[in-house]
Design a binder for these strands. Structure first.
Lengths: 342, 342
DNA sequence: ACATGATCCGAGAGCGCTCTCGCCCGTGGA
DNA sequence: TCCACGGGCGAGAGCGCTCTCGGATCATGT
């Protein structure tokens, strides 16, 4: 609507500065092959005309887009309840904009979406992709692979065992979980239950493994599967109390579920931490601080994970060899944060 | 990395189908000016070669990008705590992808970011913009205006009074608030407090106005300002109880704050709804359902707002006249959802 | 049979940019 | 003084697409 003012082109700037297009291009792209008096004249012309390069024309020849896709592969509701994604997204966004790259967001819910994403990536509209919250049976990695788009995953993909060239960033889920449970053991707790996350995600599996590392030969009735939502935390806690009334500690695979567990424990009249100690995972603020009592939990720096994912990808795209240093996975450390719940 | 297979061009498809570029272009873009036997041959060639149009080349001539920017103008922490944004984003995403448009996400925190966003929009990289969560003192609308990019706002901008051409989608904040408070009055409550949202957002102001519509000449001590976070809800509730111990109802400007208020009320030994009735706003699931007791609240369809914003913008971009039908604002209705808290 | 449209398709220009190539000019060595 | 050399700059091609325009083809009216 309304006639858009035609934006000045390289040609126009060149004319105004009395030089050739090539020279303007050189100046704009920061080449040092233009001597000072001229370069300055060009810069001034750019300024005066308010010239902004046409990205489409540029991409047409460079085959770079300075854009990366961020794929949020969460089928349903969790994205809404869990601040996790927003936080990771922010980390990614920061790093990306710091390097003048655009963030193209792709939200997927079902298989149809995956096909669409596959087509999109194959279409070569972006230079790379970042995948958040992948589930094990997801066809996405395959699509991405065949699209040939450089990709960094957030969280270890389930097939990363040894498949070549898979790059991911994750936190030390297993080690963090182990620390959490050992802390409970150190508190003298003997019947430690675990509420797992959605076991179609490796983070949940790894945390479960960490739990098992610490509690060798754990009573299987002390482990209940949740799905990272607080509702599932409540459900799991009820089940645990019904099955094993004698439990004296709970390690939940994230803070949201821990908060749910806390509610049920209160409802059932168990004192925390006196009767039952509770530890979460994520240190998701403000949730972890506002539970009653405040949650002892395993901190992971989610925003940093996002930043790192983006940095890794950009480095790959630059050709600044990421192959060597990061192929495989980058694992961030976790810290146990002690509050009142355990 | 690794040599990317050069993608087939229009030219290649044309050669294979034994037609001209122009004809392939016509088929690809769904023109009906190609007769059937030929069109089919082209389609087959496209299929066989796995041809995908080069968006950059296309944009270069059409001056359209089929991309819109979504600007989340939230300075800080709220984006993380409140599922609001994720939900609106999903609505936007759905509508956009349904029309083959890309979603370019721009997260802004401070003034520097705004300048960057302004430059980005002025750069003409996107066809339009969607702005979420605008604050009153924000320079963004000005930047957008001077960039000349068609824009739809989520939530009424503070200057929308009569300024020409401002398009926005909002829910009936004032009416919804009025209904909520009238409901409390209908319950026989006489001292109804209000916890406002961040008053630099029109939604908070409008809800406050709705409250005042219903409680004419309200005791100013019954109104405390919050900022939409649950922590602020707790703080406000404490202040209210200290100042006006006799209150018998609270209307909070969103569910998060209502949940905070609920916690404080329980902590202070007030029964809900017997001693104090509580109403929230948003019907943010699962929060509203999982409070204790479940929250009576004003429902607004956030995802639908997102969808509508996108639809309005796309329509404007198509030239399918949105000027007439939507210039000004589109206000969605709200519904009071009765649960146990009031 | 020929003129007249209408319809379908191809030729070609051009969108705004980058980048190679070669020209020109200035400098230094003989 | 002349030649070789090198670095700064311009000319021009071409990225992959769209779209106008005109030519070819075919049905139709007379």
């Amino acid at each position: 609507m309304t006639e858009t003012v035609p934006r000045p082109t390289l040609e126009a700037v060149a004319a105004r500065a009395g030089v050739s297009r090539a020279t303007v291009s050189r100046v704009v792209n920061g080449s040092d092959a233009v001597r000072e008096p001229l370069a300055e004249r060009v810069r001034q012309a750019v300024e005066e005309l308010g010239y902004v390069p046409n990205q489409a024309a540029r991409s047409l020849v460079t085959k770079r887009h300075d854009a990366v896709a961020v794929i949020v592969a969460e089928p349903e509701t969790r994205v809404f309840a869990d601040p996790f994604f927003a936080r990771q997204l922010r980390g990614i966004s920061k790093e990306l904009t710091a390097h003048d790259n655009q963030l193209v967001l792709l939200l997927t819910e079902d298989r149809d979406d995956h096909a669409r994403v596959g087509r999109y990536l194959a279409g070569g509209h972006v230079d790379g992709a970042l995948v958040i919250s992948l589930h094990v049976d997801d066809p996405l990695p395959g699509l991405i692979r065949s699209a040939g788009v450089p990709t960094v995953f957030g969280g270890r993909p389930d097939f990363s065992g040894g498949r070549d060239g898979v790059v991911y960033v994750d936190c030390d889920n297993r080690g963090g979980a182990r620390d959490a449970v050992r802390h409970l053991i150190g508190l003298g707790r003997g019947r430690i239950a675990h509420i797992t996350g959605a076991l179609d995600q490796t983070s949940a599996v790894d945390r479960l493994d960490g739990y098992r590392d610490a509690v060798v030969g754990a009573d299987p009735r002390l482990v209940v599967e949740g799905d990272f939502t607080s509702a599932s935390g409540e459900r799991a806690m009820r089940e645990l109390l019904d099955r094993s009334p004698g439990l004296d500690a709970v390690f939940a695979a994230n803070d949201l579920m821990a908060a749910g567990a806390l509610r049920v424990l209160r409802e059932r009249g168990r004192r925390v931490p006196d009767d039952v100690a509770v530890v979460g995972f994520d240190d998701m603020l403000p949730i972890a601080e506002q539970t009653e009592p405040p949650l002892t939990t395993v901190r992971q720096d989610i925003e940093e994970m996002g930043r790192l994912m983006a940095r890794l990808l950009l480095r790959t795209l630059d050709g600044t060899g990421a192959e060597d240093q990061a192929a495989g996975g980058l694992i961030l450390p976790t810290t146990l944060i002690r509050r009142a719940s355990a």
